[in-house]
């Protein structure tokens, strides 16, 4: 493989990263909007959110991408290929993500919402100041998995002629015929990105836990590499054990 061809792969890598970042950002936006809409008090809002989620969870991301790329222009709406790819990915992953958001919000104990009501917070303040700050750390482990799935799914964009890493690998294969080397190389590149993303997300998870006063930042040895942090059970957070300091409740 010449340097010129390797440069081609790097160009592809850059497009892959752009696809990943744009569609992750848009998917998160969609996930929160649809996830919260499914918990709305208005029946119509809940209904439309559910239709969106079930439809886009039901269909294939690749078919969706083809549809946006080939069929949508015939309805008079032409998207730049990169945007068609981004939109297809974020609509699919936003639908999955909305379920994660919904589940995590429901897992915040009702007592938290009641306490927020008792302090006269508005519904929006309850959500923003109390519910979401507790729900987001619960979402992170699943979002971390979804992010790797999204990275893998960016390769679908090559099918609609977006010059991502997979697309450029095909070009290089055609030029050199070195299938094993080329595909082996980019599989390695994908794995390195996935590995980096997973580690980064794990750091975020740990920080989020620490913000809630959970996790092992206070005492105890660092968790060994590769061991999963124990996930909190669904439902109300467990009451902490009395810790002994400040003995008793006397004033």
């Amino acid at each position: 493989m010449t340097f010129g061809l390797f440069k081609l792969l790097l160009d592809g890598l850059w497009i892959t990263i752009q696809l990943l970042v744009f569609s992750a950002a848009l998917a998160v936006l969609i996930a929160f909007t649809a996830g919260l809409a499914r918990l709305s008090r208005r029946r119509a809002v809940r209904f439309f959110a559910a239709v969106y989620v079930e439809f886009f969870r039901g269909t294939s991301a690749l078919v969706l991408m083809f549809w946006l790329f080939f069929a949508l222009p015939l309805l008079g709406w032409q998207l730049a290929p990169l945007w068609a790819g981004t939109l297809a990915l974020s609509l699919s992953f936003g639908a999955y993500g909305s379920e994660v958001v919904r589940g995590a919000v429901l897992a915040v104990s009702p007592g938290q919402r009641e306490a927020a009501t008792a302090l006269s917070f508005t519904p929006w303040q309850r959500l923003r100041l109390v519910v979401l700050p507790q729900a987001v750390p619960e979402m992170l482990p699943t979002f971390s998995n979804q992010l790797v799935e999204l990275l893998k799914a960016t390769s679908l964009a090559s099918a609609v002629t977006i010059g991502d890493l997979t697309f450029q690998a095909q070009s290089v294969r055609l030029a050199t015929g070195e299938s094993a080397q080329v595909y082996g190389l980019i599989l390695g590149m994908y794995f390195v990105i996935a590995f980096t993303l997973t580690r980064g997300m794990r750091l975020l998870e740990r920080r989020a836990k620490a913000n809630l006063g959970l996790g092992r930042l206070v005492t105890g040895p660092e968790a060994p590499l590769g061991s999963e942090p124990p996930t909190a059970p669904a439902g109300p957070p467990p009451l902490p054990e009395p810790t002994g300091h400040g003995q008793g409740g006397g004033i």
């Binding site: 893998k152 390769s155 090559s158 299938s179 595909y183 599989l187 794995f191």
Partner: peptide, 17 residues
């Protein structure tokens, strides 16, 4: 490794290699 890399690329790998 197999889980964290794209199925599409794995298919190409199998198909061409």
């Amino acid at each position: 490794f197999v889980r964290d890399t794209p199925l599409l690329v794995q298919l190409f790998f199998l198909f061409y290699v």
